[in-house]
């Protein structure tokens, strides 16, 4: 296959995964959250237990009017959903799925600095919600934007530190390399790093219990207040795509990626299974825990996660040097 065709095919597959996996996670959230709350969730759309609910939602959003408020900063307001969404698509290019029946690892493009690339892409996505908050011309959005800025800035540090500790243990920044170098005893050594990365990732995505910027009872919908129609759907897609990227990163960095029986043939299936498992944990955390207050969010980041991440880096250094 020629180079250009190969690149095009990979881009299309990544785009396909980017458009379908968040929807699967979203449907799982509808049903899992519902059953955890002793109810059943969507049942009508699509006949069998409402499997087509998100498809119906997509159609609904597509035919809605996207209103721009008169007091909004027009270009900033209209660009914000794209700035929030595209970085996750870009990040998905570098995340590996695992060996596919001996054919080599399924990945968009294996970068030597894959980890840094993904982290950098995720940090650009922060700007999207911030632009939405500032550009809406709405006091609640403004407050939400400030909360977003503080929260996402605070939690980037523990996330990068925890990811760095995983890279140190593997000796490479390439995501394929890190997953390949996995050994089962890493689960014990990297446990604090796993917890820190997962919690910091949840806060980066503004998922409950860290959704103080989007707190309904306080801020209407924070930075997303003035958004409706397709733009709102883009923000929602960005949230669920973020969950997929976070789950994939956690799997590849801390849970061994495609480690498991028959890894050569079914490695990609193991990775997908673990991604589904971590996404379930993200959904579970949403249902089980109340929202953290804004000052509690900051305390958790600076007084708990950063020291824990630094301790993990120290531990990893000792293990590597030893």
């Amino acid at each position: 296959m020629s180079e250009a065709l190969d690149v095009l095919l990979r881009c299309l597959v990544v785009l396909g995964a980017f458009l379908t996996m968040p929807l699967l996670v979203g449907q799982m959230e509808h049903k899992a959250m519902a059953h955890m709350q002793a109810r059943v969730g969507p049942m009508a759309a699509g006949g069998f237990h409402g499997w087509a609910q998100l498809v119906a939602d997509g159609v609904k959003f597509a035919q809605k009017e996207s209103i721009t408020p008169a007091a909004a900063d027009r270009r900033v307001f209209e660009l914000a959903p794209a700035v929030a969404l595209v970085p996750y698509l870009v990040a998905m290019v570098a995340i590996p799925l695992g060996p596919f029946f001996g054919q080599g690892v399924l990945i968009g493009q294996d970068l030597d600095l894959g980890l840094f690339f993904v982290l950098a892409a995720m940090s650009v996505g922060v700007l999207g919600t911030l632009m939405g908050g500032l550009g809406s011309g709405n006091k609640y959005s403004y407050l939400g934007g400030m909360r977003v800025a503080a929260q996402l800035m605070s939690y980037e540090l523990p996330m990068v530190l925890a990811a760095a500790s995983a890279a140190m243990l593997a000796g490479t920044l390439s995501l394929v390399g890190i997953a390949d170098a996995f050994e089962p005893w890493w689960l014990v050594v990297q446990l604090p790093g796993l917890v820190v990365f997962f919690v910091a990732g949840l806060a980066e995505l503004q998922r409950p219990p860290f959704d103080a910027p989007l707190a309904d009872a306080e801020l209407v919908m924070g930075p997303l207040t003035e958004y409706g129609g397709m733009r709102f759907a883009m923000f929602l897609l960005a949230e669920y795509a973020g969950i997929v990227v976070l789950a994939a990163l956690t799997t590849v960095l801390f849970l061994g990626g495609w480690a498991g029986p028959w890894a050569e043939q079914l490695g990609w299936a193991w990775t997908l299974l673990k991604i589904v498992g971590v996404s379930f944990l993200v959904i579970w955390a949403r249902v089980a825990y109340p929202r953290l207050r804004e000052d509690q969010v900051n305390v958790l980041a600076w007084k708990v996660l950063v020291p824990l991440a630094l301790a993990q880096v120290t531990l990893t250094t000792v293990v590597v040097v030893w």
Partner: peptide
């Protein structure tokens, strides 16, 4: 609590 609810039939 949430795990218990998940694994039991919902009352809806």
């Amino acid at each position: 609590v949430t795990w218990r609810n998940l694994t039991r039939r919902s009352v809806t």
